[in-house]
Design a protein around this nucleic acid. Sequence first.
RNA 1: GCGUCGGUCGGAUAGUGGCUAUUCCAGGUGACUGUAAAUCACCCGCCUUCGGGCAUCGUUGGUUCGAGUCCAACCCGGCGCA
Length: 438
Amino acid sequence: MYFKIEKKLNNSLGRAGVLTTAHGEIHTPAFVPVGTKATVKSLSPDQVLDLGAEVILANTYHLYLQPGDELVAKAGGLHTFMNWRRSDGSFGPMMTDSGGFQVFSLGAAYGKEISKISKITDPSLLIPERFDDSDAPRLAKIGQDGVSFKSHLDGSIHYITPEKSIQIQHNLGADIIFAFDECTSPTEDLKYQEEALERTHRWAERSLAEHQKLVEEEKASLAGSLSLRARGALPLGSSACETPRKGTFLSSPALFGIVQGGRDENLRKKSAQFIGGLAFDGYGIGGSFAKEDMSRAVKWVSGILPESKPRHLLGIGEPEDLFMGVENGVDLFDCVAPTRLGRNGTIYTKKGKIIIMNKQFRDDFSPIEKDCKCYTCKNYMRAYIAHLFHGKEMLGGTLASIHNLYFIVNLVKKIRQSILDDKFFEFKEKFLQKYKSR
RNA sequence: GCGUCGGUCGGAUAGUGGCUAUUCCAGGUGACUGUAAAUCACCCGCCUUCGGGCAUCGUUGGUUCGAGUCCAACCCGGCGCA
């Protein structure tokens, strides 16, 4: 993997660049659509590529449970399995999350009204002591060595360690993988955040060690012309176990470490220092924040991480957050918001989000946005999309997801262009003035 | 006309004489940030100072401390027989 910075913003950490992976280039800053179970929900890979996405992210935990990482490896790796392929037949870049987020979503946040982004007014943020919620039901429990998960599919128990997460990710075969981390809840107190951070740092070292070991094995097995963990670069129909053809580009994935540290400045900086000091290929910035805390946290971290390596702000993707992230040195974003909101009937427009099921759109014969170039806006009117949602037709979620992803992917592309054109701050102001987040 | 079964919110439904009348759908409004999410929450008779107040199970009476529930008559509908 190779990262080249093309242009930097004056007086801020922002930059535009090109990240070259085993399966092609990603022009950064870039938005990465989420395809948790090796599918961007309701969309075909063609649709995702056509709307302008260059890379997608799948999830280790979900694919490990179903259909299993070994099966994906046997199928030839994620790219082949899900046919993440451009119109010329070449594969596109992919990444996998480590399962660390599920430590949060199935653990501390399970069954509670805690989300990744909390309101600053949330009373739980003001409680200085940690909740005593040890009896609360959760599907993920943190142990010394890793995390035990109770499968939501069949109730079976699985213990995932940093080593296990990296092994699974190597089997899945994405181009960029992440270290196993603990995403903490903002409701945890400082003492717990410190403990969790220590754990995440140990896990980072172990993830890196396991990764390096696997990379060596993969090199050796490549030298021996036999690789179970073929990088998905084999032609369709060929077995992953067969001898790679001469000249076939096989490479091990790049590994990103993840910075945590919650809302605390010292912990954030400590984490950036520690993780940034390890030999990762890039860095993820994780955690759950109060929205108002996010820019500070990102700034602290970006200022410390090595400038030459890409930075990925994990799980963030509302328009105002994208500007904030880019300005503070973020190169990659992934987020479920465009697809989840789309499926649930909320649609992005330049003036803010609209809920397409609302009464007013039932007889609105205009497109979602007149000047939008996405497939949905070029072909359909609001009334029809509203009709699909009211009628519970699957196409509604698809059309809304196409528009939302196009909107966000394209917004980040425009942000990128504005950096190249020395117009970032102008563009930001102009966009946010119109866009009313609600 | 006789017999019979039934009438509960916009639709469909539940409701041993006892407290605030159930659930689903439709309708309305929100929420959603590394996806247990094509999901979830609230509202859906009237009024309200948001504490609550007042109505209401076809209609009218009755029995009862208390009736959607029991009784009578009537109205309406389905079915059967003439």
